[in-house]
């Protein structure tokens, strides 16, 4: 059974000593094991070393924000996974420019080989009109980049914003698009392809 990490939390508040060092060493081993199991071969030994170290520093800096509504070990694992995933996403997309991602997102609005082409062409047309008409320039840019596969944190980095602000921007944009469709007597369910792939 997994530890709840309470000894690690106590050690973070304790003075230096062999007990404290042992607890923090256990926590570091747990962080490394968490990353190994969570990410498998996506992380090299050097990555594991660096990310474990970064996680320990983050935990030292922000353990006071632990809400005590979960096991401390789960919170530690969440900090580790969050940091590693952010780094992997950054690396995967480091050479992707915002404009390339938005072009990819816009191009994907017309699936060229769909079996129910008429319905999909109609859907794509209305969506494009909605995106062009109902969204602000910044919302359009962020939405198309997201649809083009750029993670929100990476969209935010390119817009010199943060993930939370970009989520709010996109949430407002989705509400505008939904209202636009409703004003045209449609909702998203009407435009999604039928499960059998045939036009209504």
């Amino acid at each position: 059974m997994r530890t709840d990490g309470s000894t690690w939390l106590a050690a973070l508040h304790a003075p230096e000593g062999s007990e404290t060092e042992r607890a923090l060493s256990d926590m570091r081993d747990f962080v490394r094991a968490t990353l190994t199991k969570g990410f498998g071969t996506q992380l090299t030994d050097a990555d594991l070393e660096d990310l474990s170290q970064e996680t320990m520093l983050k935990i030292a800096a922000k353990h006071e924000t632990f809400r005590r509504d979960s096991r401390f070990s789960t919170w530690v694992a969440a900090v580790a996974v969050n940091g590693a995933l952010a780094e992997l996403r950054r690396r995967r997309h480091v050479h992707v420019e915002l404009e390339a991602a938005t072009e990819l997102g816009a191009a994907g609005l017309v699936p060229p080989e769909a079996p129910d082409r008429v319905q999909r062409a109609r859907s794509a047309q209305l969506l494009r009109e909605a995106i062009d008409t109902a969204l602000t320039t910044r919302q359009r840019e962020a939405l198309l980049a997201e649809l083009g596969g750029l993670p929100l944190a990476e969209v935010a980095r390119r817009l010199q914003s943060d993930r939370g602000a970009v989520y709010k921007l996109l949430h407002d944009g989705r509400k505008r698009l939904r209202a636009y469709l409703q004003a045209h007597g449609m909702d998203a369910s009407d435009l999604l392809p039928s499960p059998g792939g045939h036009s209504p």
Binding site: P111, R120, L144
Partner: peptide, 22 residues
Amino acid sequence: QPNSGDLLLRMLQLTRDAELDC
């Protein structure tokens, strides 16, 4: 290239006035 249209429509289907951010 993802199927942006279907992805967006599914997101619109799930859109609510009140949502948690990431």
